[in-house]
């Protein structure tokens, strides 16, 4: 099994978002960056598939700044074999441009599986995986929460509104991972040491400008400071009255 996993360096979900002076981007001062949590599921799944097959290779690929080497090392510490950093200055919100760069790297590389997270928790674009699949003309299943592979065919389950879709596909394929697929392992000390010696290729890259222009990044409108209607069950009739007459939602 030869498996590629596309991983992204993202701000930790606990990050307090401060907007930079340009009014268009995140102020990165003091922000802790992590491996995108959905990509952890993808890395874990790749490692398990390789372990099951008994042979193969897991390659992690990130498009990002030089600091994304850290992110790649995290995946290598989990057990991936080698990493590729497609090094670029800043990342653009246009997911298609990211997809084009990744697709160019992945093209004709002979992977049986190419894995993505279902979304990056910073831009939540929810698109790069299926776009890469289209660009490479590969079958693709998104938001996979359960996966079974027999030979060159796979069956995946994905949540849809009110149910679960059971989907069949041939390999090679692109999959994007959802929570529930597996429990990602923590890198052990041994893995962290080993990761330092694993190959990490750095290739300068320049994604295209895309067709999206950022006009601004702003905090969400503050929700009106709500009111405490009262204490305990005695406050319920008043709550219901307010929901009816003031909020008009009942």
């Amino acid at each position: 099994m030869k498996i590629a996993v596309c991983i992204k360096r993202v701000p930790d979900s606990e990050t307090r978002v401060k907007i930079a002076a340009d009014g268009k981007s995140l102020d990165e001062a003091g922000v802790k960056f992590i491996l995108n949590p959905y990509d952890e599921f993808a890395v874990e799944e790749a490692l398990r598939r390789k372990e099951q097959a008994g042979s193969g290779e897991v390659v992690v690929i990130a498009l990002g700044p030089a600091a994304a080497q850290e992110t790649i090392r995290t995946a290598l510490a989990m057990g991936a074999d080698r990493g590729i950093l497609l090094q670029a200055q800043g990342l653009h919100p246009d997911g298609l441009e990211t997809a084009k760069v990744l697709a160019a790297e992945l093209k004709d590389s002979g992977f049986d599986l190419i894995l993505f997270g279902k979304m990056a928790i910073d831009d939540s674009n929810h698109q790069v995986g299926p776009m890469v699949a289209e660009l490479l003309d590969l079958p693709c299943v998104t938001t996979v929460a359960h996966l079974d592979i027999q030979g060159s065919r796979g069956t995946a389950e994905r949540e849809i509104e009110g149910g679960v879709e059971v989907v069949e596909f041939p390999l090679p394929a692109v999959l994007t991972t959802d929570k529930g697929l597996n429990e990602p392992r923590y890198p052990a000390l041994k893995g962290i040491m080993a990761a330092k010696k694993k190959p990490l290729d750095v290739k300068p890259t320049a994604p295209g400008p895309g067709a999206l222009e950022v006009l601004g990044l702003a905090p969400p409108p503050e929700r009106q400071a709500g009111k405490i209607v009262g204490d305990g069950a005695a406050a319920v009739p008043e709550l219901v009255r307010m929901l009816r007459e003031e909020a008009k939602v009942l």
Binding site: R16, L26, G216, A218
Partner: peptide, 11 residues
């Protein structure tokens, strides 16, 4: 974006 902690305006 950022888990709802900011709103991105795009043209």
């Amino acid at each position: 974006v950022y888990a709802g902690k900011a709103l991105l305006k795009l043209r």
